[in-house]
Design a protein around this nucleic acid. Structure first.
Length: 502
RNA sequence: GGUCUCGUAGUAUAACGGUUAGUACAACGGGUUUUCAUCCCGUCAACGCGGGUUCGACUCCCGCCGAGAUCACCA
């Protein structure tokens, strides 16, 4: 049974670079009957951001990465905030002191800095073990505890990177417990993963260089280590740096606000640096659970490509509409944010209700909005496109002859012709008894024959007159949804404007 | 600087000694009665460099080059 964890620090939002270290462990655990744990690593009080934990939980839930055990949920290995596990770390620390593998170090930070500077100046690697104090001091509050390293070469296996090894020169006396009594990450995660029976540690490659020290601690503690799964970096769109908040890496949850579906985000991120060897592009969670395997995780870094994410989002919008229906897709367009993290220091501007429709759409009922959605959905890349693409369904567009005349097809028609075509169209559409898409299509076809105009000219004219938008769905569908009265009113409005202009 | 990692088109990737180096996004061109999008068809485009091993190397070995990570009382 695989037991994995996601163990973020509550220092802000989760960005795109971090989130694969939640997705992959989730998949590893859930492919069998394993457990996925959410643990909050809040041992650095200086970097703590209020509300960050809530934001992290919201992000995980949004992506469908629900945890079995951890903060908010509880479980047999709690507490799941590291700040509440002090006694556990201290118990392990005392074991190391007893076995002679840890020592209290009262050396002031300034003195350590001097050592470091001196070594740097002498161009030798700074290793604290070369400056180990000679006097033994009792460990008491206010004094940091260090690991007493016994340098040697190590070899280990990483599930992604393969067999790795380093020489003894990288092992050092790292801090186990800080002077504030809380452990460092280096110590805390080892204790926690052991206590929580974690079988796979999934984390970024930046921890690779600390591995020799971790291995030494496992050994000194006399415990087995889990399997290591090191994930390569997600690179920023420009340059070769890893994606980071400093370079403007967006929060994962920001994509929710701009209308990206969680299915698309999960799909894109899971496939960034992993593939199953087939040519499949679209993966649902259940597809991923079926296909995912650690040994096909890429060992090289992958660049984040927003364009491809948006392409996949479009695919998912259509997939959901086609497979689950209009109602299912509609629900995403008025998604409610249950976590209500608006009073959140990490991101104070978030609303608790996300609606991707234009404001005026709220004057209409849900059934009408769904009709609009059903004819526009296949041109959405993100749900928020609705705001820009659908306003003319909810409010009459302003008649704008300049816009009309500047259209490339309208340049081929004189204003008199435009007037006459509109007149003919109005007559033809007025005569329709049953206002259905089929009847409208027939009417438009008849109109084409009767006027002898090209579709590009006749249809562009009508389309612009009823929408004044740069684009719209198929003419007969747009008219059907708009209804007979409004279609005719809009045609008349433009016709009158042309007549006045003549 | 020490240590470690990575290196196929602009991007994400396939290939696990023998292929005209495949696929997707992007770009470009074309088609589907208007526009935008979908969908379909087509075009452009890659094995970092140099040695070796081999009948044969993207694939194995070595060197170089390039890129990145890390050297905190941060994670």
């Amino acid at each position: 049974m695989n037991i994995t964890r996601f163990a973020p620090s509550p220092t802000g939002y989760i960005h795109l670079g971090n989130v694969r270290s939640a997705i992959y462990p989730y998949l590893i655990a859930k492919q069998g009957d394993g457990r996925f744990i959410l643990r909050i690593e809040d041992t650095d009080r200086n970097r703590y951001v209020a509300g960050a934990t809530e934001l992290i939980m919201e992000t995980l839930k949004w992506l469908g990465l629900d945890w079995d055990e951890g903060v908010e949920k509880g479980g047999p290995h709690g507490p799941y905030y590291q700040s509440e596990r002090r006694d556990i770390y201290h118990a392990y620390a005392r074991k190391l002191i007893e076995s002679g593998r840890a020592y209290a170090d009262p050396t002031p930070a300034e003195v350590i800095d001097e050592y470091r500077k001196a070594d740097n100046a002498a161009k030798i690697p700074f290793l604290y073990r070369n400056h180990r104090p000679t006097e033994e001091v009792a460990w008491e509050p206010g004094i940091p505890l260090r690991f007493k390293s016994e340098p040697k070469a190590v070899k280990w296996h990483d599930e992604v990177m393969g067999d790795l090894e380093t020489g003894p020169e990288v092992m050092d006396d790292i801090i186990l417990i800080k002077k504030d009594g809380l452990p460092t990450y280096n110590f805390a995660h080892i204790v926690d993963d052991y206590e929580m029976e974690v079988t796979h540690i999934v984390r970024g490659v930046e921890y690779l260089s600390s591995m020799p020290n971790y291995l030494a601690i496992y050994e000194a503690l006399g415990i087995d280590h889990p399997k290591f799964v090191s994930l390569p970096h997600v690179l920023a769109p420009q340059g070769n740096k890893k994606l980071s908040k400093r370079d403007g890496a967006k929060s994962v949850i920001d994509y929710k606000d701009s209308g990206v579906l969680p299915e698309a985000m999960l799909n894109y991120l899971a496939c960034l640096g992993w593939n199953d060897g087939t040519e499949q592009e679209i993966y649902s969670m259940s597809d991923l659970l079926k296909s995912f395997s650690i040994d096909r995780i890429q060992s090289s870094g992958a660049r984040f490509d927003e364009v491809k994410l948006l392409w996949q989002n479009g695919q998912w919008i259509r997939k959901i509409f086609d497979e689950k229906g209009c109602d299912a897709l509609y629900d995403y367009t008025v998604s409610r944010d249950h976590a209500a993290v608006s009073a959140n220091a990490a991101n104070p501007s978030r609303d608790s209700l996300i609606i991707f429709w234009p404001e005026s759409a709220m004057n209409y009922d849900e059934a009408y909005r769904k009709k609009v959605l059903s004819i526009i959905y296949d041109r959405l890349k993100v749900l928020s496109d609705l705001r820009e693409y659908t306003s003319y369904f909810f409010e009459d567009p302003r008649v704008d002859l300049e816009y009309l005349q500047s259209n490339k097809f309208m340049k081929k028609l004189s204003e008199t012709e435009q007037r006459d075509l509109l007149t003919a169209a109005i007559e033809k559409l007025t005569a329709i008894d049953e206002w259905t898409a089929d009847n409208l299509q027939s009417a438009f076809n008849e109109l084409l024959e009767e006027t002898g105009k090209k579709p590009a000219e006749l249809f562009s004219l009508i389309r612009i007159a009823i929408s004044y938008a740069t684009f719209s769905p198929a003419l007969h569908l747009t008219c059907e949804v708009l209804g007979k009265d409004r279609t005719l009113a809009r045609l008349n409005a433009t016709r009158s404007a042309i007549v006045n202009d003549l």
